[in-house]
Design a protein around this nucleic acid. Structure first.
Lengths: 333, 333
DNA sequence: TACAGTCCTGTAAGCGCTTCCAATTTCGCC
DNA sequence: GGCGAAATTGGAAGCGCTTACAGGACTGTA
């Protein structure tokens, strides 16, 4: 439709200055006279000039873009608002900068290749890596690339240098302490995978709270965060520890499964058995009874990851961050 | 960490050919001897060469990136899986190309400015515009920019040249026909905003179905797609048309509100009054009773928008697309 | 053998910008 | 008024790549 967009040279010419000066103005560098600045600003205005990103990036060796990579295809990530919330948080910070946001779904092989290439060719100024698998080769690649990388969450195999994580351990402890606070004594747990950082830490939080209260932490079933495993775990717990009066479940999906089993077995929740979940997904509000659970600060995660990345890009050295979780008390405990 | 990534010149040198030839190889252009091709490919391999996007884009006048812009901050968009699904669809197609995906949340003023600048500076090869407001100035800007633009959904004020939309009218008609099919005769509707394309078209679908069946379409309450307005609408309908035996509600959120009112008023669903919603959001599975509703093909929307955009970028002239919706029958009708 | 046509290749001119350098101007102060 | 320092400027060299263009090597045919 319209013609080629105006170039810096044209702006400079119109303003009666050199390209160098024009460039200084639009990057508001110092050493520019008020007169020159105004002339250039006027020309920019009149011409509707917008800098060409490619030219700038080639000359400056900066890309003007960061990537948000989600490297898991765990349906659970997509089955709730995780996505929307992270992006909302990321976007809020991005908007304050003049960086662009690139999105890479690095779950598939192609997606992972893509991310690898971005890293290798340094075609982004920074990368946020979310939901990395354990022992993910991308992690090493990211390290070696020389591109600033912020991780969302941690893995067991190695703690990244810069990360933002939710306080899974603290959240779990808080949940269990709540159960203790309302008088429960025989508190079980259904864990997530114990080869995942979240799985381990929520379990540790459970044990910690019980240890502090001098209660037994021996009522344990292991699950995989999925609903079916929650049901199975609950069944096992009821069989092995018929006396239990509360259960801390390491995910809402498993908690939903557990509630189903409890209902089938005729155990009243929370009267007979109190239940607390983890994550605060949408469906937690729709279980019967409504699920008391630990809310994850997803949006804040996105926000803080981005802040950290921006700092890193600016040459600062931020410290890792662990974000507090919050217990949302509903009806199940 | 590592040094500057290798350049094309270095690859060419190592392969013993000129940069021109090396460039032809990595863009697999024609007129390259098998020998030269192999030599370059080997050098690329050995050096771990990845083309520099900025250089390429500057020289080729192509950006290698498209943007997905979501220009509404309607909480409903974020309150369900809309986001995740669209992006999944978009990503699936993007992965088959070598385009990058840039995300712009253009709800805020800053976001809109950003998008405007991208359009003006042609810093993307194409744009997907989702959830544009009525009379949105971005729409005109996009047209004039000379950048290929695909719209998701339509607006009343103007039909974009290239768009993908869900068949709101057909979906509504299908929903109402279902109600007729199960023997309902006095079918009401709660509409969405009638200054929105979706609002109008779902309403038209309702009227169409009734007209075809020779039934009255006079039982109408107007809402705004939100839950509260659904409750209000239902209340009004019950007062004005106590004889109604079914209601087609233009969104699941409003349907949830309507169900609540029906419950309070002691009307059994679906026995006394059948209810059909629209959108098939997650919560539709958790209402009491579970909501029969029209499912929107969100992922397909993302996919088809992207396909269309890619065609446009390749110089083809695709035709607009209207995607079929699907009635999901649960318990409320 | 000569000649037109094809293929292949190297050369070099930018794409639009930043930034270094050196030249020029201005300023503060004795 | 004169001096050094600081501020401001223009010029030009790239950043890494694509893409005419022109020339050289080959092919097939007469």
């Amino acid at each position: 439709m319209s013609n080629r967009p105006p170039t810096l040279d044209e702006v400079a010419q119109r303003a009666g200055v050199s390209t160098g000066t024009a460039s200084r103005v639009i990057n508001n560098a110092q050493h520019v006279s008020k007169k020159a600045r105004q002339a250039v600003e006027r020309a920019v205005e009149e011409l509707g000039y917008v800098p060409n990103v490619a030219g700038r990036s080639l000359a400056s060796q900066r890309r003007g873009a960061v990537v948000l990579a989600i490297s898991s295809d765990d349906p659970a990530l997509f089955a709730n608002l995780f996505f929307a919330e992270v992006i909302t948080g990321v976007n809020a910070v991005i908007e304050e900068t003049d960086l662009q946001l690139m999105l890479v779904l690095a779950a598939s092989e192609r997606g992972r290749d893509r991310l690898a290439r971005i890293l290798q060719s340094r075609s982004a100024d920074g990368v946020m890596l979310l939901a990395l698998r354990e022992n993910d080769p991308l992690s090493k690649l990211a390290d070696e690339s020389g591109v600033p990388v912020v991780h969302g969450g941690r893995s067991l195999d190695r703690t990244p240098q810069w990360y933002v994580d939710a306080d899974n351990r603290g959240g779990a402890r808080q949940a269990v302490e709540h159960l203790i606070g309302v008088g429960r004594q025989r508190i079980a747990t259904i864990t997530g995978q114990l080869d995942l950082h979240v799985g381990v830490n929520r379990y540790l939080g459970y044990r910690e709270a019980l240890a502090l209260a001098g209660l037994s932490d021996a009522r344990v079933a292991h699950g995989d965060f999925g609903e079916a495993s929650g049901a199975a775990g609950m069944t096992r717990l009821l069989d092995e520890h018929p006396d239990l009066d509360a259960v801390f479940v390491a995910s809402d999906a498993m908690a939903a499964g557990a509630l189903r089993v409890l209902h089938e077995r005729g155990r009243a929740v929370p009267e007979d058995i109190a239940v607390v979940g983890f994550n605060d997904v949408v469906t937690a509000q729709h279980t019967q009874p409504r699920l008391t659970t630990v809310h994850q600060p997803i949006e804040a995660l996105g926000r803080e990851m981005t802040r950290m990345l921006v700092r890193l890009i600016n040459g600062e050295r931020p410290t890792p961050l662990i974000l507090p979780t919050e217990l949302v008390i509903r009806d199940s405990a």
